[in-house]
Structures are given as structure tokens and as C-alpha cells.
């Protein structure tokens, strides 16, 4: 199951649903964002039960990206109850993404 790309409206809904949310801020022109893609889809499979694993295209959601202070991409942000718990820029492996989730979820 691939991680779904969401818009700002869906982002706001997810923030209110009580489940932790992992967002990958990306853009089509970002080479490293593409490299993360296959691993991020696997993460969506593995963690789909505990987390909403989604993507936000910053070109389509510029206001959201600005408000969330996304300066560089890819940036992964983990949210719970509408609050950003932690972020990581350009993780270098699927294992690094898993470690980021585990270290910050509990």
C-alpha cells in the first residue's frame, strides 16, 4: 500500500483524529524525495495500524508547508494530537525512518 498524498483539509482532519500522523513533506522536483519513496511506502505498510502515514506535496500545499516551517525537503514530521513531536531531514535508510518513529512515538 502506497503512502497517500493529502491536501491541507485532510491534514487538518487527521490532526483531530487522535491517531499519530507521520507526514513526508516532498515535491516532485526533489531528487532525494523520490529516493525515499519506495522505503516510505513500506513504512506505510508496516506502521499502518498505529500511524497514519501520509505525504504532503509542498508545491500544492504552500501555506501548510510555510506554517509548519518546512525549510528543506524531504522532511518527515511526526504529529500527535495536532502537535509536532519530532522531525527528521533526508533520512538515509528505511531503517533510519523506523528508528525515528520508534524513538519518538513512545
Amino acid at each position: 500500500m502506497a503512502a497517500v498524498n493529502i491536501n491541507e483539509k485532510r491534514f487538518q482532519e487527521l490532526m483531530g483524529e487522535g491517531k499519530a500522523v507521520l507526514v513526508d513533506y516532498w515535491a516532485p522536483w526533489c531528487g532525494y524525495c523520490r529516493r525515499i519513496g519506495p522505503a516510505y511506502d513500506k513504512i506505510a505498510d508496516q506502521f499502518g495500524g498505529e500511524l497514519a502515514v501520509v505525504k504532503v506535496n509542498i508545491d500544492e500545499a504552500m501555506d501548510l508547508a510555510r506554517r509548519e516551517q518546512i525549510e528543506v525537503i524531504p522532511t518527515l514530521v511526526l504529529y500527535r494530537d495536532g502537535k509536532a513531536l519530532a522531525s527528521v531531514v533526508a533520512p538515509e535508510s528505511k531503517a533510519a525512518i523506523e528508528e525515528f518513529i520508534r524513538n519518538n512515538l513512545n
Binding site: Y32, R34, R35, I36, G37, P38, E92, S93, K94
Partner: peptide, 13 residues
């Protein structure tokens, strides 16, 4: 593979 196929060339447009 730790991330995705292609290695260094994956960042070459």
C-alpha cells in the same frame, strides 16, 4: 538495499 534502487545515479536527473 537500504533505501531505493540506483545508488548514486538515482540523484542524477
Amino acid at each position: 538495499e537500504k533505501l531505493s534502487a540506483g545508488g548514486q545515479m538515482a540523484l542524477t536527473e
